[in-house]
Design a protein around this nucleic acid. Structure first.
Lengths: 188, 188
DNA sequence: ACTATATTAGTACATTCGTACTATTATTGA
DNA sequence: TCAATAATAGTACGAATGTACTAATATAGT
């Protein structure tokens, strides 16, 4: 029982990595098999299809996102500090973001073009972040409408910079953009 | 000779549509065959591989982008009016952009994860737009550095809104965002 | 210790993929 | 008009795809 859960977790982890770095459609089932390092039969035992693995990956991402945001909430009593966490996390991940784009956005755009279930799961992650951002600006004293607008503005810029830094293979774009983003927080 | 060029053009057009709406990897060769409505053999006669079609699609996009920008340049003597053209084109295409994302960005992010040649072609399109935007702000009297920053800011916002409107399936986001973008132009 | 079940491995298979190939028909240029 | 070539159709094929299936092994509870 316990060993199976570990394997399951490993599969999700490997698939998550490959879906991020290569995209879902370009990642073959055998790629996952190779990455995990176990037999094909073993993996089909835990997940009966490639799509099943995908939804598991999504659910794990949602869980991770929840945990990260909750951790920031708990660690910092100041909403401004929490927002800085968010922005700093972009800079911290700039190398990967520049190479492969935003993991949530790239999967969402690839799959949003067709699938319905995965679109809903994607939306789940984005809502987590958007609502969290909105709450921070509320804490800063903005009106609900202002807070939502600011959250969206921040989110949009974050996504935009991910796209352009990837296209230009220039991770320095993040530092440039982050200065503007941090200014948004200051004007309380 | 002439009929062949027409067919070639049709193939590119169909492939362009499918690559946009489904992505490159999800689009099978037979999908293109079906979309064009001609035989498989005919298409392999004009393009020896799927990747060949892709590069042809890119080159056509570059050509189209060049033409569009040049047309705006010729039509409007005022840089402000030209920038409004750019922004209005986002609103005009909001339905498709919301459904499938920015055609250039979605292909770029999908292929930028692996391929090298296509990354270069993607970058070509983005450079066309970025440089054009930069030139407009220069015309408005900004310094080269300011112009570049404003161009990037505008570009980033445009890409960000494409990503989020797609995820949320909400094309109304464009109107919201466009107001902010147009303010960028006014402050001359 | 023993049986039921969880887990892993290995293989097999139908399907689809992209491309190559040949044959047939249109079109062109001299 | 008539060869040469462009263009189209149709088929074939090896490789890779995702999944199903069976056999073997490990692990658990009793």
């Amino acid at each position: 029982m316990k060993q199976g859960e570990q394997t399951r977790s490993n599969i999700i982890k490997s698939a998550n990595k490959l879906f991020y770095q290569q995209g879902f459609h370009k990642t073959a089932f055998s790629d996952i098999v190779q990455e995990v390092g176990l037999s094909k039969g073993n993996i089909t035992y835990h997940f009966k299809s490639k799509e099943d693995i995908l939804t598991a990956v999504f659910k794990q991402r949602i869980e991770n996102t929840k945990n990260t945001l909750a951790a920031w909430d708990q660690k910092y009593p100041d909403a401004s500090a929490r927002l800085h966490c968010f922005i700093d996390s972009l800079v911290a991940g700039k190398s990967e973001l520049t190479r492969y784009g935003c993991p949530n956005a790239t999967l969402a755009t690839e799959l949003g073009k067709s699938d319905a279930l995965t679109r809903e799961l994607s939306l789940g992650i984005f809502d987590l972040i958007r609502n969290w951002l909105s709450r921070q600006f509320l804490d800063l004293g903005y009106t609900p409408e202002q807070a939502e607008n600011l959250a969206m503005e921040l989110f949009i810029s974050g996504q935009g910079i991910c796209v352009l830094s990837q296209v230009y293979s220039d991770e320095n774009m993040f530092e440039h953009e982050v200065i503007k983003l941090k200014k948004m927080i200051k004007q309380n």
